[in-house]
Each structure stands twice: as C-alpha cells, then as structure tokens.
Design a protein around this nucleic acid. Structure first.
Length: 599
DNA sequence: ATAGGGTTAG
C-alpha cells in the first residue's frame, strides 16, 4: 500500500515501511529525513496519518523539530501540531521552546514554561537554554531572573549548556555585572562560557574588559575559537585601535582562523572602523567565497569612509555576481547615499528594496531616508516622511532631522522638531546642545538662556566630548578643557601657538558654537581651543615623527570648529589626520576633508 | 527525539 503513494523524496524508502509494521521497535522516525520547508513537512505529515502515527508523540516531536529548522515560516504549523497533542511530555515542550526562542517570540516560550510547571512536569537541562535565549532575545530581565532562580533550585547551574545562556541572557539584558557574577562562580569555565562573557562585554561597549578576558583565556589551558575572534575583533573595532587590530590579525593567521568566512567579515569591519580602508579591501579581495555579510561589511566600509559612489558600485557588483542583498546591505547602501548626497539614487534603492527583493523596510531604513532628505536640505519632505510612517517614530528619527535643521540653520523647524522629541524623550542632553547652538548662531540669546535653564531644571547633563589617539600602542584619552593628562600644560601651549599659525592661513574660530552665552569672546575662543579633538590631534602631532598619519576617535559627532581647524592643521603640518566620530570617518589631507563638508 | 557562545546595521 505504501508503494502506491506518489513519489515522495523526503521518504527514505517506502519499502522499509511495509517490512515490519507491527514489530516492537519499527522506529517510524527512521522514515523521516531532514526537511524544513512547510511543503515537505506537510508531505511527511500526510504519511504519518496514513500510517496512523499522527498521535505518536515522538513522531510529532520530530516533525516539530523540523519546523524549528526554518522557524520563521513554519512555527505556526508547529503550534498547530502541538495543540493536537493532549499530553505533551517534556521533550516535546523543549522542542517547542527552542522554536519560540529562535522566532523571537519569548512570551510564547514563557507561557509554555508556565504550562510545564502547572502540569507538574520537571524542566530539565534541555529546557533552560531555550528559555534563557528567549529572554535574551526580548531583553526580558525580570523573566530571565526568575528562570535563573529555578535553574539554581534544580541544581542545573553547573550544566555546561546552561552556563553560557545564563551569561548571554544577562548581557543581552544589559546587566553585565550580573553576568560577571555568574561567570565568577563557575569554577572551571569552558571556552563557550568564556566566549559568552567576552561577547557580552563587547556588545555592552566594554572592549577593554573583553580584551582583558581574552588575555585571561589565552593564559588558560583552553583554546580560543573562531567565535572568540569575532568578539575580539569587534572590541578592536569599538576601540578604533589599529595597531592592536593588526596584532590580532597576525594571531588569527597564525592559528588558522582566517579560514572562517565570518572571521574575515569581522576583519573587514575591524579595519574599516579602525580607519584603514586599504586593509579592509585587502581582506575582502583575498576571500575565496564572499557571502551577503561580507559584501555588506565592505559596502558599509566604503560608506563610512565617505566613498559613497564606490559603495554603490560595490552593491551593483554584488548583484552582478548574484549574491542576494539583505536588509543590512540596504542599510549600508542607503547610508552611503545619504552621506554623499545621492538623493535620487537613495530613493530608488529604497523603492527597489521592497519591490524587487521583498524586504520590508524597518525603522533604521526609515532613519536613513530621513537623513537622506534632511541632509540634502529637503527638511519639509523629511518632516512629512516621519509623520506618515507606518511605524511609531523613535526619538532617533526626529533627532536626525534636528541635526539637519541645525546644519541648514532652520531654527523655526528646529524648535518644532524639538517639541516632537520632547513628547517622546526629554532626557537627551545632545538635543538641547544642538538647539541651543542653533539659536546662538542665529543670535537668539533669550532662547539660548531658556534652553540652558530648561536643562538645569530637568537635571539633563550633556555627555562630555572625549577623543582618543593611539601613540606607540598606548591609547591616550582627552576630554574637553581637560587638564588631567600629564602633558596637558604643554599641550595647551602647543595649541595656543598652533591656533596663532592657523589664523595666519585663514582659520577663523567659530565661537558661535560655544554653549555659554555670557562669556567674553576671548574666553569662548579658549574653550574652543581645548576641545577634545584638538587636544588629541595636538598630542599626536608632538609625539609622532613628522609625516605620520594621526588617527583620532571621538565619542560624539565632530564639532564644526574642530572640523575646520583639522583641515588647516593637515595643511600646516603636512600630515594626514583620520578622525572617526560617532557616525563616520573624516580623512583630512592638504586642507580638505573626505566628507566634502557634507555632514 | 530535545540543548550552549557569533559577524555586518543602530
């Protein structure tokens, strides 16, 4: 009878099924070959019904497990199968929980968990990794802690599969100290647990801690893995420390990790973010096989270095060799367009994203579009664009528009936008600073005073500007007006002299950017002169041999006056200055910047 | 039958 069914490829062989239908252990599971599409799963399901196995819990578990191989399209079906089982066992629950964790539907996972407890079933070491992953995905710290408590109660905190997910849950919920507490209690962590902790540090922007733990791992008798290298490279990228990154690259080559596709992608990212586009290109070109992620990393690399046209050309190459772009590729392309003023092209790519590739634009794509329009001065269109969004706008979208209002000097719209931001979040110091600077430049001092008072009343603080420069493998940090660095006195003198020389070749300090309205002109100039970027550049100038490129990393957007000064410094000192700010790179050379002043 | 850490964007 089985032979009369139409040919079905997922079946291993119809013959074996009719061999011994009533033997004690015919293992119907052996008939099920791995499959993941809904169509294949339904075909197999039809066979289980024919063989009257649709109530066999192990068969259904297997089917549901197939659904978790491709969960985004098959989990609804899994749910359907699951609902028909009157008394699921713990294995079936675990399988479902895994699917929910992978589809990012943590609430369903937690509901499942309550059901397990209510039924009096005992969750085991297979249950918790999925549950914790679900909590991590949804950043549900409260639920995560509950699960953690139960893990301890059941004595499963020693399980090597549970430990990394516990750490991962805490770091994804941004509770890094809780994660570290878990880590410290483990007597001999395995390499996966180390990786979870190192990754946690880098995801929480604590690259130095990540690197310290990597060194500890090197000192142990465990061997780092490719995953370790991904997090370590990500940490180098955060620091912008090129020399360190190069050292890690050597280590990667020596240990054969350069065979891994993802490690190479992370290398491209690291080199790009450490300011060496050439090295990023070199890694990319040496890759034998390039996937979507590798292409995306390279597109982003060109984009953040101001080579918008090159980034777009890369995208066209990618299409030519038939690598499918994903939502992140498009973020890179749109970013490139907005930072190069390619408004028409940007709009076209935005359209083609959904029309040709079926990618639903997310909030970040909309953010790129706001930036694209607003940067180009089409402020009204950008405003309308945000208002007509199918999603709830985040303060980030309005903030993007606010920056553009500032660079285009549109105070009226700036105020309007600020109101919209305040409806959502009034605790962001940077917003006040932008608006205040705008008003100051327009000479509206009463507005400036009002904004300052508002900040004071609400207790809003602005993030201090901080710039760092790497000299002889040591990263030196400077804060605005900083007098703490050991060489600061000398540095101030150097800057005083430097600014005098810069003025001779045409530099004019832009004192309208100084926040305090009631300062005298000389005081304002002095404040400007000791901005963190300038301190870092000056430190680089006096501590490196002539002609060396100076690489500076800043935590905020570069200030307009420092941008202007850096151009003049590149001329006067005959140096290349590469400055990474929170958004992108500025390459200063011969009095010009790679951003073309479009920022 | 079921299980851990992951790059690219922001």
């Amino acid at each position: 009878m089985a032979t009369s069914t139409p040919p079905l490829n997922p079946l291993s062989s119809p013959k074996s099924k009719s061999n011994n239908p009533n033997e004690s252990n015919p293992s119907p599971l052996s008939l099920l070959r791995k499959c993941s599409s809904l169509k294949e799963i339904k075909q197999i399901q039809a066979i289980t019904i024919k063989s009257n196995l649709q109530h066999d819990i192990s068969v259904i578990t297997k089917l549901i497990n197939f659904c978790t191989l491709n969960p985004s399209t098959t989990m609804d079906h899994a749910q359907h199968l699951f609902d028909q089982i009157p008394q699921p066992d713990i294995v079936l629950f675990n399988t479902m929980a895994r699917g929910y964790a992978l589809t990012n539907t943590p609430i369903r996972a937690m509901t499942l968990f309550s059901r397990i407890l209510n039924l009096g079933l005992l969750p085991d070491d297979y249950t918790f990794p999925s549950l914790l992953k679900a909590c991590a995905n949804s950043k549900a710290l409260k639920e995560g802690k509950q699960v953690h408590n139960l893990v301890i109660k059941l004595g499963l905190h020693l399980n090597i599969y549970v430990q990394p997910t516990l750490i991962n849950m805490y770091t994804e919920c941004r509770d890094i100290s809780a994660a570290r507490k878990v880590f410290d209690k483990i007597s001999s962590p395995c390499v996966v647990t180390y990786n979870a902790m190192i990754t946690g540090y880098s995801r929480c922007s604590q690259p130095n801690e990540a690197l310290a733990l990597f060194r500890e791992l090197q000192g142990s008798n465990l061997n780092p893995t490719d995953v370790t290298m991904l997090s370590v490279l990500s940490s180098c990228a955060l620091l912008g420390a090129l020399d360190l990154g190069k050292w890690i690259h050597e280590y990667i080559k020596k240990n054969g990790f350069d065979e891994y596709l993802k490690v190479n992608t992370a290398l491209i990212d690291m080199y790009a973010k450490c300011g060496s586009l050439e090295d990023a290109v070199c890694v990319f070109e040496n890759m034998r096989f390039k996937d979507t992620q590798a292409w995306s990393a390279m597109i982003v690399a060109y984009a953040i270095h101001g080579h918008g046209y090159k980034a777009v050309a890369m995208f066209e190459d990618m299409r030519r060799v038939r690598v499918r772009p994903d939502e992140i590729t498009f973020l890179g392309v749109l970013y490139a367009c907005s930072h190069t003023g390619m408004v028409v092209e940007g709009c076209e790519y935005f359209q083609s994203m959904s029309v040709r590739y079926g990618i639903v634009p997310g909030i970040k794509h909309f953010g790129c579009m706001v930036d694209l329009l607003a940067r180009a001065g089409r402020l009204d269109e950008a405003y309308k664009f945000i208002e007509e969004l199918p999603l709830m706008p985040t303060p980030i979208l309005w903030r993007t528009l606010l920056s553009a209002c500032s660079s285009h000097g549109n105070v009226e719209m700036g105020k309007q936008v600020m109101e919209r931001i305040f409806e959502l979040d009034d605790s962001h110091g940077g917003d006040y600073v932008i608006l205040s600077n705008m008003c100051a430049r327009a000479g509206r001092w009463e507005d400036v005073n009002y904004i300052r008072k508002l900040m004071k009343d609400k207790g809003v603080v602005k993030v201090p500007g901080c710039s760092s420069v790497e000299v002889n493998n040591v990263v030196h940090e400077f804060f605005s007006g900083d007098g703490t660095h050991s060489e600061s006195r000398e540095l101030h003198k150097v800057l005083d002299q430097l600014v005098k020389e810069l003025k001779l070749i045409g530099y004019v300090p832009d004192t309208s950017l100084v926040f305090h309205a009631d300062m005298r002109e000389e005081e304002k100039e002095a404040t400007l002169r000791y901005h963190s970027e300038k301190l870092a550049i000056a430190f680089g100038l006096i501590n490196t041999p002539p002609g060396t490129t100076i690489r500076v990393v800043k935590n905020l957007r570069v200030c307009g006056d420092c941008h202007s000064a850096a151009k003049f410094i590149s001329t006067i000192s005959n140096r290349q200055i590469i400055l990474r700010d929170i958004q992108r790179f500025h390459h200063f050379k011969d009095g010009k910047c790679s951003c073309g002043d479009y920022w």
